[in-house]
Design a protein around this nucleic acid. Structure first.
Lengths: 239, 239
DNA sequence: CAGTGGTCTAGACCACTCC
DNA sequence: GAGTGGTCTAGACCACTGG
């Protein structure tokens, strides 16, 4: 494993451990840390940079690097999708997640699918519709299109488990990025049926294009979440 | 200005110019570019990294760096808030934006405001409620709390213009980061009144904490957007 | 002033792609 | 094997903070 990732993980451990405790005092300076971890200062900075990008640490030139106040959530427990998570939800979860397959077809790419996946009109794509449950209560309905020329050999069996695991482990492809568009939307009839919503309860829709390390877009999906069981968090810092 | 930022901007120019044209060919390699820009390879990488993080370029080890297919939006023209934008909307906009001040008070910090801004219960905070219009049609209603001990001297006059400009130019504070939580929500009576929504039309709520370069949280806000005039985009790539 | 983070350099070696 | 990006180093100089 890369040194900067190892160090970054260890720093995060220490923050969670309260080895570095959320106070007004800085963590050890970069020179000191690079000596401790037996690395160059640039590598040390790269490790810290990861935590800075996630909003866990902030730096003050001339003063030191500090742990940010815990940013405690102000709302009732919900599912959170973090900006840092690329696709799928199988991470970070202690709950019981179930999938129910609604439909699984092979279709011709429409105009919008063609654009999203950078393929040709009418190229074959999988269309997968699933509902996901948390502790037996419906949570999101997902419509997924996958380029059939890349993601080959999908079966209902695989869909019952994790598509992403199949892609990474069996097909040996690496998922490296995703673009998301989020919007609120009134629920339609299917949403209400699948997610047990009433007429004026909305959904949070996440439109996503996911990419392989080759740069190829392999998945285009629409996830419609119950408004009361899902939120999306994101941290941004100046470049 | 920093070298890596200058170079990054120039690269972006060249992509928009079609000097580097979205094809299957890579842009010039890092060594070549670092010679052209008269910088070290590490600085060159840093410049490219910015565009990689924004999803504009992707790299393939052994093969080269490529421009990503344009990721054309699939939906009708809306306002987009990009993950990379920290706060305010005054950027990237050719439209006519108007503000209408609904109320402007000094109040005592509640429990949740206290937590968000890391201040004490009952500390003084500004509460500002505004509606924003695009081309005279209502678009978002924003409730903003600001730490009155930091952001001093706010007047209705300033609110009519840009608070952020005031903070950066007049108070000489630098806004460097923000945490956002996004959720869908049924519209309440006020939303419907201000945003001209009907009963079953929802809003997209953005809860935000914004930070100064000192690490201090100075603003805590709730922006409720018309569902049909706003979406949020975000690009994520593996570390 | 001493101490901190921010930028930049010139090089090294490695892992991977593609011919 | 030649060419590409990925990691890492040991140092330099600068800008800023805070006593």
């Amino acid at each position: 494993m890369n040194k900067y990732l190892e160090i970054s993980k260890e720093l995060l451990n220490r923050i969670n451990n309260k080895t570095y405790n959320n106070s007004t005092n800085p963590i050890p300076n970069e020179i000191q840390l690079s000596k401790e971890f037996n690395c160059s200062r640039m590598t040390m900075r790269r490790a810290i940079d990861i935590l800075v990008q996630e909003g866990i640490i902030y730096r003050r030139r001339g003063a030191g690097s500090f742990i940010r106040d815990s940013m405690t959530s102000t709302c009732s427990p919900k599912f959170k999708l973090d900006n840092n998570i690329i696709s799928g939800l199988t991470q970070t979860i202690d709950y019981n997640i179930d999938n129910k397959l609604i439909s699984f077809k092979l279709i011709f790419a429409t105009e919008s699918i063609k654009n999203a996946l950078s393929i040709k009109l009418n190229d074959p794509v999988y269309e997968i519709v699933r509902i996901r449950y948390i502790n037996t209560s419906p949570y999101v309905v997902e419509k997924t299109y996958m380029d059939a020329s890349i993601i080959s050999g999908i079966t209902e069996d695989i869909l019952a488990k994790s598509i992403y695991k199949y892609i990474e482990k069996e097909l040996n492809l690496s998922i490296t990025g995703s673009k998301k568009i989020l919007r609120a939307s009134p629920s339609n009839q299917l949403d209400r049926e699948y997610l047990l919503l009433s007429e004026n309860e909305p959904v949070l829709e996440v439109e996503q294009i996911a990419y392989l390390s080759s740069g190829k877009a392999f998945e285009y999906s629409f996830s419609r979440h119950r408004y009361d069981k899902f939120e999306f968090t994101s941290f941004t810092s100046k470049k």
